[in-house]
Design a protein around this nucleic acid. Structure first.
Lengths: 127, 127
DNA sequence: CGGTATCCGACCGGATACTG
DNA sequence: CAGTATCCGGTCGGATACCG
């Protein structure tokens, strides 16, 4: 939202001119909390409190904001069971699952190459 | 298998050791400029000024910082030709290419689903 | 339980100026 | 051409408090 601040993006990157859209989606992937949430939800629906426990370090504020934007993008579905106290479940939508599998590929990459990256950094910083 | 395809994101994130390295790598993907630069370099080596021209909207500062961190991570190689004026070329390393291909998967996803995402947002914002 | 509202410090990144 | 240095406004996100 209001990413328009960042000037007019008429660029040669990608084939399609509105790179803003492309960037919007990539920003979603770029968000570290979104990635972690989508990865967890790839395992199946989870309650709010489950997510909060699983992602130690995330603040209530950020968990809510993350879930809201994922829901807004149609990647996550929110289900409220009006018991008392209320129960809220989050699950990936079908489209959300397709993104989740892409993200999963990235995570696999990250795990496979983290030693390489760490070594590269050490070497770079040494010189 | 219910959770085999997932990473150990369940580890705490509060303590910085185990997961933060994973996150460091994902942050690289998360950076919007890094993604664009890697995508461009996927086509072959490029000069500094070519990148700057292709990615309209990027500041000189950010292009330099982005390239430096990609180089530090061993994903991009910097080659200086000491002519006058100097010429600097950037190219993906072999490992950089493997990440680049993951990234292109994401970009393909983004193109395929950008209408869906846009529609979801419109519907969400309307309610 | 599952949020919302508000404050505020940290950091990110654009603009600008200068250099080998 | 390919950077580095500095300033600084804006945003992100943690902490805290409160609510249905």
């Amino acid at each position: 939202m209001t990413r328009a601040r960042h000037t007019d993006v008429r660029e040669t990157i990608g084939d399609d001119h509105p790179t803003c859209r492309l960037r919007d989606v990539l920003d979603r992937v770029g968000d570290k909390w979104s990635v972690l949430v989508m990865d967890l939800l790839g395992d199946g629906p989870k309650r709010y409190s489950e997510l909060q426990r699983s992602i130690a370090g995330i603040s209530q504020r950020m968990l809510t904001l993350t879930l809201r934007s994922l829901e807004r993008d149609g990647l996550v579905e929110r289900t409220v069971t009006p018991t008392s106290p209320p129960r809220v479940d989050y699950a990936l939508t079908p489209v959300g699952r397709t993104l989740s599998s892409q993200v999963s590929g990235l995570i696999v990459w990250a795990r496979q190459h983290r030693d390489y990256v760490a070594a590269s950094r050490a070497r770079y910083d040494a010189s």
